[in-house]
Amino acid sequence: MKCCKNCGVELDSNMIICPLCNQYVDNNRLQEKTQIQELESTSNIQSSIEKNRLFVEVSAIVLGSGVLITLFIDWLVHKSITWSYYNLIASATLFANITVIIFRNRLPYLFYWASFITNSAFLIIIDNDITDIDWSIKLAIPIMLSFYINLILLTRIIKLIREKGFNIPAIFLIATGLFLMITESFISLYLYNVIVLKWSLIVAVSIIPVTISLFYIHFRLKKRIDLKRFFNI
């Protein structure tokens, strides 16, 4: 009688692995398997770190050379740095965003805030260069903040949903409608010092029937659910 040393059940004579506890019946094989798994997992981690590092390096080279070339041409033509300054700022922001995107899996929420801070800094620098700091603080950053908050909420909600289907585009549409209303609120506050919703309201109202239809299709198609069961009284 062949028994599993781990869980004690009786095994067929041709079994190598216990189907109950997934342990090798032979201890030597178990050790071999553990060593192989350890090696595989170490090499997987290493290769993914290397890939990310390589991508960041390539991005730095591409963006850095673009910045150097534009600075050089600008200097040749104007004997000073004028328009190439914007490219420098944009490339720096892009590089910062690429870096946080690469490491987003480790610290997902830090990614959002890091990205927000970099982009805000970019907007303030541009604003400061064109006029005094004005629209970036009053308009662009609040809109961008609402965009990021919307994005975080959306990611959380989508994560929580177990059965994904047509409900996802429906939720996207709702989020978009909300974002547009917030955007118009900030624009209206900036321009007229009062919140007046016009076009965003029309967009939001137009979204409602589409969203309802998408939710309806989702629940209709969701894993053979029929509405008779769902609404059974």
Binding site: M1, C3, C4, V9, E10, L11, D12, M15, C18, P19
Partner: peptide, 10 residues
């Protein structure tokens, strides 16, 4: 009284 024969149980 005897260990469970896992293949038969399945």
């Amino acid at each position: 009284k005897q260990p469970v024969t896992i293949s038969k149980l399945y």
